[in-house]
Design a protein around this nucleic acid. Sequence first.
RNA 1: GCGACCGUAGUCUAGCCUGGUAGGACGCUGGCCUUCCAAGCCAGAGGCCCGGGUUCAAAUCCCGGCGGUCGCACCA
Length: 560
Amino acid sequence: MGREEKDNVLELAIRRGFIYPSYEIYGGVSGFFDYGPLGAILKNKIENKWREIFCIREGFYEISSPTIAPEEVFIASGHVENFIDPLVFCTNCKESYRADHLIEEILKIDTKGMTFEEMNKYIEKIQCKKCGGKLSKINTFNLMFKTYIGPLNARKGYLRPETAQNIFIMFNRLYEFCRKKLPFGIVQIGKSYRNEISPRQGLIRLREFTQAELELFINPRERKFERFKRYENEPLYLIDNNGNEYKISAREAVEKGLFINEAFAYCIVLTKIFLKEIGIDENRIRFRQHSKEELAHYAKDAWDCEVYTRRYGWIEVAGIAYRGDYDLKMHEKYSGKEMKALILYDKPKIIKREVLEPKLSEIGKTFKKRAKIILEKLKEEKLIEEFKRNKKVEIEINGEKIILDEKFIELKVVEERIVGEKITPHVVEPSFGIDRIIYCLLDNSYKEINGRIVLSLKPEIAPISVAVFPLVDKEELNNIALKIYEELRNNKIYAIYDEKDSIGKRYYKADEIGIPFAITVDFDTLKDNTVTIRFRDTKEQIRISINEVVNKIKELLNIS
RNA sequence: GCGACCGUAGUCUAGCCUGGUAGGACGCUGGCCUUCCAAGCCAGAGGCCCGGGUUCAAAUCCCGGCGGUCGCACCA
């Protein structure tokens, strides 16, 4: 895995302006990074590629929400309660442990649902694994950033630890927008915040990071998912939670029961397709199922998408979670607002039913204030049989017996049309860590060829698309090169111009930041109005007329 | 959060042990040279992570903080 070698990729990324450690002049703060000039373009291109796939091609709509939310949101979502680590440390040697893990390991007691006070009692029976010392009581540490909304008597709030909650909260609005039909999906790209205990490894673990998430709302009774068909043959590299490896198609994985349904498999495949399309080698992409212990508090099943990197081995860049109905149910409970979808039957069900219909005017006149209670009681089904037998019913209110005969009620047969059933949709959630993906992409693209560093980013993803150079720094060449440079930019193509140093040096520097094409104006240009286009990966050149340059570049970049 | 190691220009690094205020290389800026694949010439700018202590004097020794790497733990 090459753990000892230094991180050339990170070094290049910082040196050439992709990323910088944040707040450097004040000593830096771990877990935060700035995107520099090239990194910001790269990030935008990757996010737009994601949009291209999820929004344009797959047809899911994007929303954009605040990153601060009132406390209630995360009480309901379970993050206030579950997004914490119950830590204990040894009062002697300072070693720290997860309390729940320790209890399960040493005492073999299931800690699920246990309060911290209960855990504390068990912890008293345990000594430090390392030195036998006394363990402290549980220290809790919530990984969410806390804040206050407004001045005086402010409402408590948190910076969101995931973008997903906003979509769940807006479910009714979004369900309405999507014309009340399942399945439907909503996406969001935005910042999330987690106050990690020890952020490390550059872009891999950040305290503020960008997520791209899809919340796909489905009917849990449907195993099928219409759009899955077009992707079912995609080959996948899978590792299930027993450690079994599979290299099979998505369809086969569904048939083997590895995935809960086709919608889940569809999200797995989309994840792979996205990574492939931004330029990650598909042989470096695998999916690993979470073990029971790894599962988040909301997840019924989850698979991580991992990409292989030279520096860190396999790292998680996306997670596909089956959140079931957890979130909608929780928000329904805490907000008191119904959050359900109506599933229509093929044909409305028509149910014939006998009811005792009260004659309201008679009951009201006779029983006055007691009428309301009487009407409630009349809904009891057993009274129907009694009425059929005796043509009257006897009910009791506060110890008083009341007899109701045909003067007050009549037996009727009513027809009820039931068009469908309300259910809580289930959610499949692919969630992407954009920053990690950027790191993996840089790692995947980084090549050293005979001492030459080449960042072989796909042309459409590379931050700068074209470099324009005069072969040597001569005014007559520079002027032509500058004109081409200008024209490219006017055609919405990211380009740079450089006249310094030898041509070889300029090619080298362009290769290092992944510029796929270099246009060179040479002395032949003065004679016949042609220039060369040099290709980064092969160093080959073609010669074309200046007039064709923009169109040729557009063609190479795959834009029309 | 614990432990180990570490922190010198944009990058890599010499100097630290044996205190006397920094030297190189690449990069950067300007100039020269240069007719296709970085490292030819000249000139220039730029640095001891922060704070405190010891000392006549601290990049150097001590303490604390911040940051980094690795291991443990954690990573929804």
